[in-house]
């Protein structure tokens, strides 16, 4: 297994990376950890002509506290996030989520920016950024944008990112009470269902991944929440539930309810 040929450019600044993206358009791909992109390139399911490596760009791999938010640089690895004191202290749900991704080796290399941009419908972060109401910070030829998580995911492997935009950071509000519940697909260890729950007094925010072709906020659950787990019944209300040989739609919908219930009660 080896990718098709491509040109590789190590970007030294965001401006350079964006310029390259604008120039090569659809033929270019951004790589940081490469753990979403390179497997697809090896199988030649993805064959960019130009690969722009942003891993070396300074300032994208920090985790800082800014104005009551925890700002996670796009190039932060899952492991970095899982073990960050700031994240564990203020957005524990994010650290938990990061710990469920892949395996030790994948967490040492894969990045949050890469995972979000790839938008795999079974990825873990989407549930958590949705429930946390995180802001995806992006930069492109037309400048900087702050995209609310709920507007970011637009479908299977598609996002609100423009062709020349790069995720620079994810801004998380502090979360006192949250949890991530994951039912693992037994082969890939991706989420068959992943549920992020953020509670604030009598209100709750629930993000769900793995169930539909795009992650979603379970607004029906949020509205019905009464402090118990009973609102979990509404986990897939109005959702087109995916089906595969690990989980058909009926079972996946059931799992979503079970996981949401655990989250609400957690």
């Amino acid at each position: 297994m080896i990718p098709a040929k491509f040109d590789y450019i190590k970007a030294t600044s965001l401006d350079q990376a964006i310029e390259l993206l604008a120039k090569h358009g659809f033929d270019a791909k951004v790589v940081a950890g490469g753990h979403s992109l390179i497997p697809a390139m090896k199988l030649r399911l993805n064959r960019p002509a130009v690969l722009i490596d942003i891993k070396g760009i300074e300032g994208l791999d920090g985790i800082t506290e800014e104005g009551g938010h925890i700002v996670v640089g796009a190039n932060c690895t899952h492991n970095q996030i899982a073990s960050s004191e700031l994240v564990n202290q203020h957005v524990g749900i994010l650290a938990t989520t990061a710990r469920t991704i892949g395996d030790v080796q994948v967490r040492n290399k894969g990045t949050i920016g890469g995972s979000l941009a790839h938008a795999d419908p079974a990825a873990d972060y989407p549930a958590t950024v949705l429930a946390c109401e995180a802001i995806i910070e992006v930069l492109g030829s037309n400048g900087q944008r702050s995209i609310p998580a709920v507007d970011f995911f637009t479908g299977m492997f598609t996002t609100a990112l423009e062709d020349d935009e790069i995720i620079t950071a994810v801004r998380f509000p502090k979360v006192a009470d949250g949890n991530y519940q994951k039912f693992y697909q037994s082969a890939s260890r991706f989420a068959v269902v992943g549920v992020a729950t953020v509670k604030n007094g009598s209100s709750v925010k629930v993000g769900i991944t793995g169930v539909s072709d795009s992650p979603y906020r379970a607004t029906a659950v949020e509205q019905a929440y009464d402090g118990t787990g009973s609102a979990a019944e509404h986990a897939v209300d109005g959702v087109d539930v995916m089906s595969d040989h690990f989980a058909n739609a009926e079972y996946r919908a059931h799992l979503a309810k079970v996981m949401v219930k655990k989250g609400l009660e957690g």
Binding site: M1, Y8, K10, V31, G34, H35, I38, P39, K42, L51, D53, K55, N79, V104, Q105, V106, N108, K109
Partner: peptide, 17 residues
């Protein structure tokens, strides 16, 4: 790689520069 376990089949050699 720099002290951390990684899967070398999923890293380009150029990324390891």
């Amino acid at each position: 790689m720099d002290g951390k376990a990684v899967k070398s089949c999923t890293i380009l050699a150029v990324q390891a520069d």
